[in-house]
């Protein structure tokens, strides 16, 4: 069980007497990306929220089988809302997102800015950036914290091709170093850039 992080055991979710998720079971493994795909409204985001513990499932369990009690605290969640403050600059947003255990923080921020090619915009207020740039700021948070798991809702939405490549590169490196990723998208990833497992969610 060494390379397993989380077991999703028979999870179902009912909302307003309508079944949104039904008997979903899978495991999240280290060094692997898991792509949850399905139609709009099939419950991808709800499942992510269940995994990170924001929503309680109607039945079923989320089991932490990684052996690390703090797994969920070492998880980065990027949802539909990016979690960036419009009235802070890019750099300030990143520095407030830092966790205490991250060392060489200023260096990490500088590196993240360079990776996503945002160094020029680092002193701009986030609200003045475009939608895609704001998304990049939130994705940069994954690079500056030491996390065991990334949970990202629609990482590719609003990104241009160059940024998608950057995200793929950083994810690949992260997975090779033992990280794990859960993401959602509208379609199955047929030519994976990194080790990807696809899981279809039926509505």
């Amino acid at each position: 069980m060494d390379n397993h992080l989380i077991e999703i055991d028979n999870v179902s979710l009912l909302r307003n007497e309508k079944s949104i998720l039904e008997n979903i079971s899978f495991q999240i493994k280290k060094s692997k990306a898991l792509n949850l795909y399905g139609l709009n409204g099939s419950g991808k985001t709800s499942l992510l929220k269940i995994i990170v513990g924001m929503t309680e499932p109607t039945s079923g369990f989320i089991k932490n089988i990684s052996g690390d009690e703090d797994l969920f605290k070492k998880t980065i969640y990027i949802g539909h809302k990016y979690g960036t403050k419009g009235n802070l600059t890019v750099e300030e947003n990143l520095s407030y997102a830092l966790t205490i255990n991250s060392k060489n923080s200023q260096l990490a921020i500088k590196k993240a800015l360079e990776t996503y090619k945002m160094t020029q915009q680092k002193s701009m207020l986030t609200k003045n950036l475009s939608h895609g740039q704001q998304k990049k700021v939130s994705l940069m948070k994954t690079l500056i914290t030491n996390s065991l798991l990334w949970v990202i809702d629609e990482p590719y939405s609003a990104l241009d091709e160059e940024s998608i490549n950057i995200f793929n590169d950083t994810t690949k490196e992260y997975l090779e170093n033992g990280g794990a990723l859960i993401m959602t998208s509208h379609k199955k990833i047929k030519e994976p850039f990194f080790t990807t497992e696809n899981y279809k969610i039926h509505s």
């Binding site: 513990g53 924001m54 969920f72 998880t75 969640y77 809302k81 990016y82 979690g83 419009g86």
Partner: peptide, 9 residues
């Protein structure tokens, strides 16, 4: 802006 979600998790 979603900061609350991340904070709570």
């Amino acid at each position: 802006d979603g900061t609350l979600e991340m904070f709570l998790i």
